[in-house]
Amino acid sequence: MFYLQLALNGFIQGLVIGLGALAITLVFGIARFANAGTGDLLTAGAYGALATHKATGSLVLAGIGGIAVAAVASLLAYILVFKRLMGRSVMALLLASIGVGFAIRAFHGLLYGHSQYVFQIPLSRPYVFFGLRISALDLALMLTTALAVAMLFAILHFTAIGRQMRAVADNRELARVSGITVGRVMTALWLLVGAVSAVAGIILGMKTVVTPEMGWDMLLPLFAAAIFGGIGSPAGAVLAGILLGIAQELSTPFVGFTYKIALAFAVMLFVLLIRPQGLFGTIERVR
């Protein structure tokens, strides 16, 4: 039962990782680079939600506020930085994304300081299912995540802009000559990436504490899950994130709390060695 409870906690951690990995895999698949600034978009979402929650007292509005803040930050990063670097070397984009992450973190540090913030959420008695304890907040967070993921997949698969995104991911030149405006697709992509990152950041912030470094500290598990799921595969990213989250929680009684992140690194290495295309990856040939 102890392990089941851990697995449940890991599942919620895994939602955070899965959503963050989703943001990474979308950028990797469509804009073709590893965005090391993703973690700090999570942070932007968490602070945005925190500020909205303080101002309005409503958790729903807080979620919307956080999503809006991170989406705008993400779009700004594209317009100001990544748009100018399209077609440049891997190093240029990687290093620029590190720079974007630093800039966002510095902004948070200056605006909110370095003290830890928590969401002031009233505690409620947890529900007990077959001896498993689950709080109302956790249930709400799970439902929200499921909704967010469902919406994202609906956008990707059932709307014109989603089809265009997948077309650009498949073959950018072919998409362009077929009359797809790459600029519009990119704008939509970065808004979506910001929104998905924000949901991850808000859940993380509600479950733990909000600090300027919270997102950066998650970067390694996010990349590990994106690679594990198969680069460019949104479904794979979510699944891999959940698996990784559960594995991390289950490992803590054996290796201790601090080695959670190291476990993500080990998973990443293992996947790269054994099955570099990940669970569902097909688009990217790694080696």
């Binding site: 720079g99 630093f102 800039a103 510095a106 370095h114």
Partner: peptide, 21 residues
């Protein structure tokens, strides 16, 4: 000092972006 650390981080980030671009 914590604010200075943030400023330093921001300047490094922006300098990285500007030089790379």
């Amino acid at each position: 000092e914590v604010e200075m650390a943030s400023i330093r981080l921001g300047v490094i980030g922006i300098a990285l972006i500007l030089f790379v671009t």
